[in-house]
Design a protein around this nucleic acid. Sequence first.
RNA 1: CCGCCCUUAGCUCAGACUGGUAGAGCAGUCGACUGUAGAUCGACUUGUCCCCCGUUCAAAUCGGGGAGGGCGGACCA
Length: 345
Amino acid sequence: MDTAERAALVARHTEEVVTEDELETLLAETAEPTAYIGYAPTGEMHIGHFTTIRKLADFIDAGLDVTVLVADLHAHLDDEKSPFELLDARSEYYRLAIEGMVAAAGADPDAVSFTRGTDYQLEEPYTLQLYRLLADTTISRAQRAGSEVVRQSDNPKLGGLVYTLMQSLDVAALDADIAYGGIDQRGIYMLAREELPDHGFDKPLCVFAPLLSGLSGGKQSSSDRASGVFLTDDADTVAEKIDGAYCPAGEVADNGVLEYLQRLVFPVLAVRDDPLVVERPEEYGGDLSYDAYGELESDFVAGELHPADLKPAAAAAIDDVIAPVRERLLDHPEVLAEAYPETWG
RNA sequence: CCGCCCUUAGCUCAGACUGGUAGAGCAGUCGACUGUAGAUCGACUUGUCCCCCGUUCAAAUCGGGGAGGGCGGACCA
């Protein structure tokens, strides 16, 4: 694989790369570039996380050294989304779920390094750097950077501000060349690109994944189980949720069903070299089979593929994709019960 | 340390002055209409009224105490 091919692999299915030129340079000049993505272990993981994590397989194939940060302190700093006492349990759950998703994406989980925030964020060098960042970042700058990530309220806590600076510093602390995350993380990593060079660190490249629409048209949320498919949802639940999803015939915008297919199902099917089969009654033209998302979208836009036929096929395919992750999680009921006692205890 | 304000449905809040065991909007659920969903109609559900004590035939409402949250003041040798 030459540099251009590797760059294309890293960049495919992304929302934005900052910047493409820097990516080519990095891949050409660095022996083993590093990329990291951080997750604050808060609510249960869902299919939106899966689409973002699935891309780690591309990173690994492109020769990147991938680290996943389980940012336990962040989970508490952001308006105490996770109680302090649950950080251990939820960190364990996140690691289990993420490993499951990496494996389900066709990559080797052992190729990913895991780190927890508390492994290094309490040590002196990190703390000292954090204080220095705190000293020269304005409140409004930190607020703006974190506005898409940190919970907003009329009476925001200091934790949400520190969260933003810590995440910026994490890029340097983990020695990552590339900061990867959903496009909602853009504000924070732009702050990192601005501030880190002033503190003697390299300016990180950023790769942003698209966010999935929720099934009702809004955003997917960990705190709303109905807004999307969760990793532990069984086949019937997936079918119910997809059946209820906003899905206007012929329209692509805000269509969660199509997004699931494009961003998660087809990439996984491609690895297995399987098509997506849509069963359809004879009166509407009989079964269909798609090897690529583009064909399916064309048919959908043209009105050749009706939502009522698409939905059951999509539900079955989604269930098939999450099944191995679900099984891995349900194999460890004690992990779920300790991390989310109110749901699983 | 002092003073003032707030706490009612999943969310935002009304009701408190003039006690009679609670309402609106949004959300949600279910029908109708569409070969899905949404939109649109139609129907429906939801509550330790922050906690404790007291007054009263009767307290979300009045009195006292407490908890949590917000705002302001004071101290500044």
